[in-house]
Design a protein around this nucleic acid. Structure first.
Lengths: 243, 243
DNA sequence: TATGTTTCCTTAATGCCTCTAAGCAAATTT
DNA sequence: AAATTTGCTTAGAGGCATTAAGGAAACATA
């Protein structure tokens, strides 16, 4: 037995697994998603196609593993951006994470589309790496909004104002996620999240190409609209206009 | 020569073309997008694979033609819903068209995803059937908003309030589309459109499954938020709650 | 150290896919 | 009636996912 109970073989195997995902990513970036085939990845690795099945049981499994990688990377980018501000400044931390999300989308367009642009539910079944990584990702924003609200409650609608069905669904979510947050707070979060992520989805699907060539100010405008709903003062991005 | 200068052959050909697209659609609905292959469609038609190349030059061309079909169908659904109200009632016409869009999405989920869920720009080059059909589609909403504004101007932001970059881009769009509308009006339209379509995009990409099982009230809430921005009174859908 | 097992990889093969090529037969035009 | 166009066929190249069978090296153990 080697140190830490991890055998030499296992270490080599993990390295190979990572190398495979890296090759898949390279193909994705250089030649698009349809180029990420078992055969092409194996070729990239200098091995035969079927050899890859010793590492990932199917094409779909490889795709899922790569997706989980991207999710983790994105989540880490969000967390770094958030942690660039001290723990108490929830507003700044939140805005920073939002901007980091778009920044990651822009600097990794192929990966972003890969992660968010597939309605395919198959690889997203409960328990999969993809599903877990996805939860972590949502968590970042939700946690910060919760912290923000606890530290300085922003105005929320009265429970009676909410649509009963929406209230019920949000309550069910809060219960299943073990959240202590009032439903109205989740509602505000949900509303803001839909605005932000909806915009990014449209940008990613090229739905707004007919209107815009530069989406950066549109995104900032979205933040400017969201901020007051969370009781925040909008602040322009640190580096001036864009990046 | 037959009547109307359309030969018998040409008529048969058009029929076959339509039948091919119908077979493709059937496959899409019953077995998903990946089942829409040249070979499968040909099989469905009772002919050999290569025979289909006499009708559509490539898989991509067939996909584009099917997409254009869907776009036209959706556009027609929007127009019917709009025209269910008299020409003067722009507000009701607009809301009706919005609801029709979601209704079509719900009743034709596979087709909706097919149309909106592909970031692939290749088939969307200028002049393609898909590109033209896409413009018609956007036009429905834009036209109605324009008519609404002309008949009863809603409040718009002052030009100075708009981000200079956004203003410039919207002005460029207005010029290229030959619109007589002030940039501020286009800005309001754009803002509403992003809300509406962004929400539908997220729903389509299953991005909100973790929060909602029934998106209908969420959509209505979105309409309730949009309506006042266009100077409209929100009215619940005619049939009561949903559908 | 010798033996057995596990692991990694190979080639072969099946059956799908897109798409090109060559050719036959019927419909249409001249 | 002859020539052309059109609609289809089969054959085939090359790619894909995946399974099966087997060889060789690394490892564990007696």
């Amino acid at each position: 037995m080697a140190a830490q109970g991890v055998s030499r073989r296992e270490r080599i195997r993990q390295t190979t697994l990572a190398e495979i995902r890296a090759a898949a990513r390279r193909l994705l970036i250089e030649q698009g998603p349809q180029a990420v085939t078992i055969n092409a990845v194996a070729r990239e690795m200098g091995m035969s196609g079927p050899a890859l099945y010793h590492y990932y049981g199917s094409h779909e499994e490889l795709v899922g593993a790569v997706t989980a990688d991207f999710f983790r990377e994105l989540t880490q980018a969000l967390e770094s951006a958030r942690d660039a501000y001290p723990a108490g400044e929830h507003g700044r931390r939140l805005l920073s994470a939002c901007r980091a999300m778009r920044q990651w989308a822009i600097t990794h367009p192929a990966e972003f589309r890969w992660v968010f642009g597939s309605p395919i539910t198959s690889e997203r079944r409960p328990g999969s790496a993809r599903e877990l990584a996805g939860r972590d990702f949502e968590q970042v924003f939700l946690e910060e909004v919760a912290a923000l609200w606890h530290s300085r409650p922003f105005p929320v609608p009265a429970p009676e104002e909410l649509d009963p069905s929406i209230r019920k669904q949000l309550a069910a979510y809060a219960a299943s996620a073990g959240l202590e947050l009032p439903v109205e707070v989740i509602h505000v979060f949900m509303s803001c999240w839909i605005r932000l992520d909806g915009l990014l989805c449209m940008e990613m699907l090229n739905q707004l190409d007919f209107l815009f060539t530069d989406m950066e100010p549109v995104f900032e405008e979205c933040l400017r609209e969201i901020a007051p709903r969370l009781g925040l003062a909008y602040e322009p991005p640190p580096g001036g206009a864009a990046r």
